Amino acid sequence: MAEQVALSRTQVCGILREELFQGDAFHQSDTHIFIIMGASGDLAKKKIYPTIWWLFRDGLLPENTFIVGYARSRLTVADIRKQSEPFFKATPEEKLKLEDFFARNSYVAGQYDDAASYQRLNSHMNALHLGSQANRLFYLALPPTVYEAVTKNIHESCMSQIGWNRIIVEKPFGRDLQSSDRLSNHISSLFREDQIYRIDHYLGKEMVQNLMVLRFANRIFGPIWNRDNIACVILTFKEPFGTEGRGGYFDEFGIIRDVMQNHLLQMLCLVAMEKPASTNSDDVRDEKVKVLKCISEVQANNVVLGQYVGNPDGEGEATKGYLDDPTVPRGSTTATFAAVVLYVENERWDGVPFILRCGKALNERKAEVRLQFHDVAGDIFHQQCKRNELVIRVQPNEAVYTKMMTKKPGMFFNPEESELDLTYGNRYKNVKLPDAYERLILDVFCGSQMHFVRSDELREAWRIFTPLLHQIELEKPKPIPYIYGSRGPTEADELMKRVGFQYEGTYKWVNP
């Protein structure tokens, strides 16, 4: 592979701008107003304001973009700056750019259920340069409990009458099928589907988006991507930290609602779906819905739930269990780990287990898709061969690698495990991989909904998990304890083995 010439960040961002501006969906010269509902909250200060700053800094926003914060707290732009700027990672050389960014910011205080507050917000936006005809993007960085009041008031008082209007809704989209349907029906009564952007930030990850290209742009994968060759698929999300004093919020939802029903299920769809007619948003989402419709409700015998306990040999936070978090209700049975087996009941995947695993306070930070292939028929190497695996590593250190057998150097035919490896950090030294939120917010500006969740996708996802969630809430089974920093409950490994996964433990990928 030829040595790549190092590029400056300015040059890299210039390439990104060229890609972005050559499309006809990006209205570079139009006025846009980006409204952050819930501007005083954690999500706004840690993710949304920093993301908008990065896009502005790199010249990736339309030229005439204004940012308006809205929340109940009586704040000023200076207050917003004070709480969000520490997350910007701005350099001293960017000081003038930073001043320009905050000059485009404003803030309006108001209630979430008060019509007069929204009329005041609308008047404020109209007073901005060309504000009355601007395109408006409303980001709901809010708890779902206020979605209905907020969307109703936005629709009645704050819509642009000339430009387009788009609304970005953060997960969780309800707690179960019934609450999700209620919320979807409410929002759909106010906005068209092409105006609604239900954001799952995992769909903005580079390697998640790469799944489609790997599958449908490489001839070698087509013939082997089926039940005849693939023994099982494992989708993993692991965090090495616990709730760390923020367990009160987590306890309301648990690990299945927080990660599995959305992030992991979306990745499953991209692995299992048929080739779409095109890369058009609805063509892709149509195929994802077909996959979900082929999955039956989760069966309790295919589920393992766990909850982390303190590690007596650990240090600091590792010595504390979930129930030691003062914000967690006493005696909570909320799971911090889950392993679930699903089956896609169609011709391509009949009988292939899709194993979804996620948890907190585990032994490493990792998100990946792992396809394990069947054993080689007619073994001539005296059971020395391990199964081939194709691994798409989402985070950290984005990579695609194939675990395969090669001859060990020497005189004899002794096979050993090795890999074919594409590590993004080595291959793409001159490429700026956008943060997931950067990519998705740019998608909203461009009107691309491919990486957002459609209402029928959402409904099918909740259909699969709601009976299990209701059973857990009714019966309150005690989750299996696992030690902070471990791989999780051993019962999860036993479940995976029972459905056909072979864990060798003899080879570990190392970032080159």
Rank of each mutant, 00 (worst) to 15 (best):
K171A: 02
I224S: 10
I234E: 09
G163K: 09
L75K: 10
D30Y: 13
Y249P: 03
K205G: 02
E193T: 02
S160E: 11
F102D: 05
L60H: 06
I234T: 15
R175A: 09
V146Y: 02
T31C: 09
R175M: 15
K238V: 04
I187K: 02
T51S: 10
E18N: 12
R257N: 03
D42S: 05
A149D: 09
R246I: 05
E170A: 01
V233A: 08
L43T: 00
P223T: 08
E99Q: 07
F101C: 00
S189R: 11
F88E: 02
Q22E: 12
T31A: 14
I67E: 01
R9G: 02
K47T: 02
D58Q: 10
I35K: 01
L142H: 01
I230C: 10
H129C: 10
I187F: 10
L61K: 03
S184T: 15
G59H: 02
L20D: 14
R198C: 05
E19P: 14
R219V: 09
R74T: 15
R81T: 12
Y147R: 03
F250W: 06
H186S: 15
K82W: 08
I196K: 02
E252N: 14
A90F: 14
Y118K: 00
C232Q: 13
G69R: 01
I220G: 06
R9F: 10
Q11R: 13
Q28K: 12
A39T: 06
D114R: 14
H32L: 06
I230W: 03
L16P: 14
I196T: 11
E156M: 09
K152R: 15
R192C: 12
A109G: 11
M125T: 10
I33R: 07
P144Y: 00
S8K: 11
G110L: 04
S179M: 05
Y107I: 06
P172D: 01
D228E: 12
S73A: 12
R227M: 15
L75S: 13
F241D: 04
F26N: 15
R81P: 06
A90P: 09
R120H: 11
L235G: 10
N135A: 11
N105G: 04
G204W: 03
D58A: 11
F138H: 07
S73T: 10
R175K: 12
K171C: 01
R136C: 07
I230Q: 04
N218P: 00
L142V: 08
I52C: 12
F21E: 07
A141S: 08
I220Y: 06
E244Q: 15
D24E: 13
S188Y: 05
G41W: 00
E252Q: 15
Y202G: 01
I256K: 02
W164C: 06
A134D: 15
I167R: 00
S184L: 06
L75E: 08
G245C: 14
I224D: 04
P144M: 01
Y70C: 11
E156D: 14
S189M: 15
A115F: 15
N64D: 11
D114Q: 08
R17V: 04
S180K: 02
I52T: 05
F88C: 14
I168A: 09
Y139T: 06
R182D: 15
R198I: 05
L75A: 11
Q178P: 06
D42V: 01
E239L: 02
H27P: 08
L16Y: 10
F26I: 06
I48R: 00
C158F: 08
D251V: 02
Q119S: 13
N210T: 12
M125Y: 06
I35L: 11
E193Y: 00
F34T: 12
L142G: 05
S40M: 02
G38A: 03
S132I: 07
S189E: 11
L16V: 10
R182E: 13
G38C: 01
F221Y: 14
F253Y: 08
L203C: 04
L7Y: 14
H155A: 14
A103F: 12
F250A: 02
Y70A: 11
W225S: 02
I67S: 02
E85D: 07
P143Q: 02
R17Y: 15
D176N: 04
F87G: 07
A217H: 05
I168Y: 01
V150K: 00
Q11T: 14
I167T: 08
L61E: 00
F101H: 02
P172N: 00
K205W: 03
Q161Y: 12
G174L: 01
L121T: 04
R166Q: 03
G254A: 07
G245D: 12
H129K: 15
Q161C: 15
I167K: 02
K89H: 07
G204E: 04
L20H: 15
F237H: 09
S123T: 13
E170Y: 00
T10F: 15
R9K: 12
G204T: 03
D30G: 05
A78M: 13
F250V: 05
G254T: 02
M159D: 10
H201G: 01
H155I: 05
G41T: 00
T65A: 12
V208L: 11
K45E: 05
R81K: 05
L137K: 08
M37Q: 05
D176T: 05
L75F: 15
D113K: 08
I187L: 13
F56M: 07
S106Y: 09
W53M: 01
A44Q: 00
G59T: 02
G254K: 01
F26E: 12
V208G: 01
Y112M: 04
R227E: 07
D30R: 14
F237Y: 04
Q195D: 06
L183Q: 01
M212I: 06
S84F: 04
E239F: 02
F173A: 03
L214W: 09
M1L: 02
A6T: 15
A134N: 12
P62R: 07
D194A: 08
R215Q: 02
T31E: 15
R57P: 03
N229W: 06
E63H: 11
P223S: 08
S84C: 05
F26R: 14
H32I: 14
K89D: 12
L183H: 01
P240A: 08
Y249H: 02
K205Q: 03
H155C: 07
V68I: 07
N153M: 14
Q195S: 10
R74P: 10
R136N: 15
S123M: 13
R81N: 08
G248V: 05
T243K: 03
V77C: 13
D176Y: 02
P172Y: 01
L211D: 00
F102Q: 04
G163N: 11
D194N: 15
S123W: 13
T151N: 06
R257C: 08
G247R: 11
F221N: 05
E18V: 03
H201C: 00
C13R: 13
L130M: 10
A90S: 10
F241Y: 14
N229Y: 05
R175G: 08
E18Q: 11
S188E: 12
R175E: 13
N153W: 05
F241H: 10
F88Q: 05
I162A: 11
Y70Q: 14
E244P: 14
D176L: 02
T51F: 08
T10S: 15
D194M: 08
Q195A: 15
I167F: 14
T236S: 12
R192M: 09
F102P: 01
E63C: 04
G245L: 09
D79S: 13
N226M: 10
D100N: 12
R104F: 13
E252H: 12
F138G: 01
T76E: 11
V169L: 14
D194L: 10
K171D: 00
R257D: 08
D79F: 10
K82L: 08
Y118L: 09
I199H: 02
F191G: 01
L20V: 07
Q178L: 07
A71M: 03
R17P: 13
A39H: 08
F66P: 09
Q111L: 12
L20W: 05
T145P: 06
L60S: 04
K152Y: 15
E170I: 01
R192E: 15
A116Y: 09
I199A: 03
W53Y: 12
E193G: 00
Y70G: 05
Y49D: 03
S180D: 02
I80E: 02
G69K: 00
M37P: 13
H201Q: 01
H201F: 00
K152C: 06
F253E: 03
D24H: 06
G69D: 03
H129S: 12
Y249T: 03
L121P: 01
L177Y: 13
I15H: 06
L140S: 08
W54I: 14
L211N: 01
E94Y: 05
F250Q: 00
A6K: 15
H124N: 15
G222Y: 06
N153A: 09
G23I: 13
W53F: 07
Q178S: 14
P144F: 03
Q209M: 06
Q133S: 11
N218H: 03
M212N: 01
F66A: 05
R166N: 04
Q133A: 06
W53V: 00
